[in-house]
């Protein structure tokens, strides 16, 4: 049995808006094991963004336990949280969030700039490796404006990989892409997952969930479904089935 990367126990998050208390997460418990590809689904307002922020150590739960890679996140200071984000988590966003007018390689290097243990040479080497992994080894010096949406998201994936995280955290990573490109990106995620990387993928698209090995569905701050996907689709095969584009 592989070890749990993420352990969540009775996690609650409440926001106080004036006199009202909004309970975004109402006591959630689940584990994510090493090597799992989990999609977290739910409509807006279901608490999945809050979930994602806590998973990504951008936010702290009101109560309950959250452990990532053996580290209890509760009671960590802001700076300690930053270090966890830097060393254990790779973020991928819906809108890529690349630095404009900055080359792909420099974008990928970004997380390592905040890690004083990594030397300049190693930083560059790892950034090139990460870009090669996502098939952009030829476009190191291209700036985001010279890249397509899919390519930009690949740079973002490379950036999330560069610090060798224990988990990738994707927030609607295919939300801005057309189906074909989305499937391309998903096939990259699947490949990375096959190499043993744990992935938590937040989405509201049903078809994306079919590429993952497990799906957690949230509604109104509770888990309403948590099931293993017995029949994982291959994004590569699905991509091949799509009608060929004219151009």
């Amino acid at each position: 049995m592989s070890k749990a990367i993420i352990k969540i126990e009775d996690l609650k998050r409440e926001f106080t808006m004036g006199s009202e208390t909004v309970r975004a997460l109402k006591g959630i418990s689940f584990d994510i094991k090493e090597g799992e590809f989990v999609t977290i689904m739910g409509s807006s307002g279901s608490g999945k963004s809050t979930m994602l922020n806590i998973l990504g150590c951008l936010d702290q739960p009101t109560s309950g336990n959250y452990e990532i890679d053996g580290v209890k996140v509760k009671d960590l200071t802001k700076n300690q949280l930053a270090t966890i984000r830097n060393e254990k988590i790779g973020f991928i966003f819906q809108s890529y969030n690349l630095l404009a007018r900055t080359s792909a390689i420099e974008n990928v290097e970004l997380p390592l700039l905040y890690n004083s243990k990594v030397s300049t040479e190693e930083r560059r080497k790892r950034a090139i490796e990460a870009l090669q992994k996502v098939g952009l080894g030829e476009r190191l010096d291209h700036t985001p404006s010279q890249l397509s949406g899919g390519q930009q998201q690949r740079v973002a994936i490379a950036r999330s990989l560069v610090n060798n995280p224990v988990m990738l955290l994707a927030d609607e990573a295919t939300g801005n892409l057309d189906t074909r490109t989305a499937y391309e990106i998903m096939s990259i995620f699947q490949e990375l997952n096959e190499q043993g990387i744990t992935i938590a993928f937040v989405t509201h698209e049903e078809d994306i969930a079919t590429f993952s090995s497990r799906t957690i569905v949230l509604k109104d701050g509770n888990i309403i479904q948590d099931y293993k996907n017995e029949n994982v689709q291959s994004a590569k095969e699905e991509l091949a089935k799509l009608p060929k584009q004219d151009d």
Binding site: G56, L58, K78, N79, A82, T83, R85, N86, E87, F91, F93, N97, L99, L110, P111, Y114, N115, R159, N163
Partner: peptide
Amino acid sequence: TKEIGLRMAVGAKGAD
């Protein structure tokens, strides 16, 4: 602002 958010997300501390 967004860039600052990103930098923080990938591990920049407030002091950075």
